[in-house]
Nucleic acid binder design. Sequence first.
DNA 1: ATCTATTCCTGGCTGC
DNA 2: TGCAGCCAGGAATAGA
Length: 264
Amino acid sequence: MPELPEVETVLRSIASRVTGRLIRDARYLSPLAADGEPERMAAALAGRRILEPRRKGKYLIFRLDAGWMWIHLRMTGRLLIDAPRTPWTRAILEFDDGHALVFDDPRQFGRLVWSSAPPDDAGRLGPDALDLDSVEFAARLRGRRGRVKPLLLNQRIVSGLGNIYVDEALHRARIHPLASAARLGPARLARLHQAVAEVLAEAIAAGGSSISDYVDADGRRGWFQFEHRVYGREGQPCPACGSAIRRIVLAQRGTHYCPRCQRI
DNA sequence: ATCTATTCCTGGCTGC
DNA sequence: TGCAGCCAGGAATAGA
């Protein structure tokens, strides 16, 4: 599942190859990837030049010479440079330098679209998790009476965290996923911010987590999955205390935590 | 404000 | 071996 570290890794692997490129042709092999409007999207993208690619949360955002292109990989999306077509190829962008950006996505939750405004325009997307200092981070959780895990998954509050890194950050901060955000004192909020920043930085350094599908634009897998302390480790020992990792369902998500280290 | 449930989607897994 | 049924979950949305 591409979350912030995986999207950042993809951005780094494509940035130098797309910056300044003219999109000579945009082709959709599935209307879903274009949000149901493949003709309109293809027409809007063809002939545009990519001025600057960036990332916010889990979005890849490309400033064009007219409007914007944004890509969300959701669950199983992949961006690949010059990859051969597969049954799961949903869109292909051909550049003026002869190279191509290929968007594969078996489950078709992902999107590659043109838009007149960037996706973070209408306040729908909170600040990127790596752009927040501990004061801002605490301010965005303060007064929230919801449980901490669903709040961290809410992209309007902080963007970029998904199921894996929320579980990992909460374990590092020794906070139970069911804990109420309103009851987190300054010390635990500071610890949580530190844990979020650390786990994201370490995961980026490891090229992300490759659970099933994820690879970067050159097809390379990440290795942070080997560093996971709780995610996907139900019944296995906690690296900190040896207790068996527990799995519950919270907000319709598999949620992994150590019952001994993580207190409400 | 906050919660739960539903929808989208299909490869891969489980169990018979 | 074959197949039905279920699971994974990010984000939008509806309804409580």
